[in-house]
Design a protein around this nucleic acid. Structure first.
Lengths: 378, 378
DNA sequence: TTGAAAGCGTTACCAA
DNA sequence: TTGGTAACGCTTTCAA
């Protein structure tokens, strides 16, 4: 178990030098004669010495780690987010600690606790209260991911309102649908708030009466099934639903199928995020693509720069563009579909990567091909 | 941002006492006169002083944190695992740091790096090499989660082989199916290895020829769709597939539906894990339930005890029992199904919690009901 | 009951 | 090029 930890002093003694010299060698800084360096190096390697983190951090006044705070981790969206973030952090040799607050009531305290162990914090929108966010910012640099913080706090998010507006307008104007229902809880997260916002804006812009209240459910697949049960057992089920994310929409598809409700003939369903499954179900899901990877990457860069003590640029609130992805679940015909100005249509059927133009390498494409011998997730 | 951190010295000066007294008060140890205690307490609260973690950890020689190492985070399985682990850790005021190694080639080094920042490590089976595992164990206490480590290393896992055997026997013997295909990569993780093992054992036990090689795909939903494409485009598609987990099975269902293949009439599909969606799809998924929450809880308790320096008991490799859950996707009739000895059948249709006897509180049940005003995941 | 001082393991400054 | 030593912020003896 916890073997005899060796210290700089120990190595110094063994190599017959001072601790200062050992520190210089192990960090590769300062001037050390070739001969001494070799001697110290040998002692280090021979005993497998690695400087203790606590000591180092205490002396440096830095932890060499940043925190990533999420409410939960369900689904490919978060998975991708984390991957994008870590890919960036690895460059600066900064380790990333993930904290899931879940729904615990003392979660804000937990986040504050974490703030004391890291050099910076990326907090997912809606995870902690604005007050706590301000408190955190007094301790360490904070960047809000997929949301907005108090004025002046840097944040990175995807454009939700306009995309949701375009999507909803597509259903209302191009498909002539009425009585649409928004499935998701706008209080859930800033993302959902924005999508609900756009949903309403579309109605307003077209001079239609305001839509009814949203069906407030969570963002996981089974929440969508639950929503389908609710909606489809009504006397007059809606002709279309705009789901807060793809997973809910997939669940909706499942629930509809279970009741023999045909999509899109009887019910139109749309999602949000464009996760890999969105293009694989039938009918393929009309949705909005957001640059998840870049979202995470930009957040990481912003945070890492701030955590390193470099003056934060004037970049306050970054908003990344999104794309409407029109597929079949909205009622558009298979290969060529009527779309809005921003719509990009599927070229072929079943490959999410080639469905629409992507600006960056999409790792899910590689993931789908089961490369023999490669270790896969889990 | 990083405001003037106050130190113990500062507070001592303000309260007109020594640092030792401040330390005693802030930790609630030792003897301090009521009067002094109040004065120090006031200074502490007035300035919002909280002892620095690094200093404290350095003095104590402990980090007050443990690490949780996963290959990735896709799906409800990991989500549940993390939640279960953290629920246990919160009791001991230990914070949990999650590390996702993804598929990076330098991930073993990353794990070693993390080992130097925590008091103990729970490593998901198959995430790091046995050699690295041994190296880690030299630095901190290690518990393997959902797998087994080198001899002597504590581990907690679910019973896979017998469950997979029972499941497969059910298909072979009770349903008379032949030419089954195992969908999943046994090299992926110990869990999958065990399931493949059981799959083969069932064939052996019934005196049937050994099954063909598994269709090696990942464990996410889209991997199942991919597998369906592969299998169903063959000249002679299989009559049944045993999927390595529920998500793959759900993807298989989607892929089958897209091709007009009926389940279970044309194709029998089974999963593993019993995630919430398993009971909600139609046909509902025949699968194996594993006590994910308890898996995580036991791992946490084992690790936390070891991390606290308490002598680890004689508990080497814990194996938790699993349950075969027979639903419709295997071909059993809806309400009452032919089952094996261990089978527990659904009582009603659509509530995973009540589908089969569970020994502990199932948080997904609460999660499914969208409690108005409650913050939901993400 | 309180305080002075010695660590904890590292880095970095200042002399030598 | 090296070594001594003072931080870093805290806990914890040991005396008073």
């Amino acid at each position: 178990m916890g073997s005899d930890r060796l210290t700089v002093r120990e190595i110094a003694r063994l190599a017959g030098v001072s601790v200062a010299t050992v520190s210089r060698v192990s960090n590769g800084v300062g001037q050390v004669s070739e001969e001494t360096r070799r001697r110290v190096q040998r002692a280090i390697e021979e005993h497998g010495y690695r400087p203790d983190h606590l000591g180092r951090a205490l002396a440096a006044g830095r932890h060499g780690a940043v925190g990533l705070v999420f409410p939960g981790l369900s689904g490919p969206y978060f998975s991708e987010l984390i991957q994008g973030f870590e890919a960036e952090a690895v460059h600066t040799r900064t380790s990333v600690h993930i904290l899931c607050t879940h729904l615990r009531d003392d979660s804000d305290a937990e986040v504050v606790e974490m703030a004391r162990r890291v050099d910076g914090l990326a907090v997912f929108g809606g995870t902690v209260s604005p007050d706590t966010l301000r408190e955190l910012a007094k301790l360490v640099p904070v960047v809000v991911l997929a949301g907005e913080g108090p004025p002046g706090m840097p944040s990175v998010r995807a454009e939700n309102v306009a995309a949701a507006t375009a999507l909803t307008r597509h259903l209302l104007a191009d498909h002539g649908l009425r009585g649409l229902v928004f499935v998701g809880d706008p209080r859930n997260s800033p993302d959902v708030t924005g999508r609900w916002e756009g949903f309403r804006a579309a109605h307003r812009q077209l001079g239609l009466p305001a839509p009814r209240a949203p069906l407030r459910v969570g963002l996981e697949q089974h929440d969508g099934v639950f929503a389908a049960e609710q909606l489809l057992s009504r006397a007059a089920p809606p002709r279309g639903v705009v789901c807060a994310n793809d997973e809910t929409a997939l669940g909706m598809l499942v629930g509809a199928a279970a009741r023999g409700v045909r999509v899109p003939a009887d019910l139109v369903v749309t999602g949000f995020d464009d996760i890999p499954m969105a293009a694989l179900v039938s009918p393929a899901l009309t949705t909005v693509r957001q640059p998840v990877r870049e979202l995470a990457g930009r957040t990481a860069r912003l945070l890492l720069r701030a955590a390193a003590g470099e003056a934060g640029g004037p970049d306050a609130a970054l908003v990344l563009p999104t794309d409407l992805v029109v597929r079949r679940s909205c009622g558009c015909p298979a290969p060529t579909g009527a779309g809005t100005a921003t719509a990009r249509r599927p070229a072929t059927g079943h490959r999410p990567t080639t469905d629409h133009t992507t600006t960056e390498h999409d790792p899910t494409a590689a993931g789908r091909r089961p490369a023999a011998g490669a270790r896969s997730t889990r």
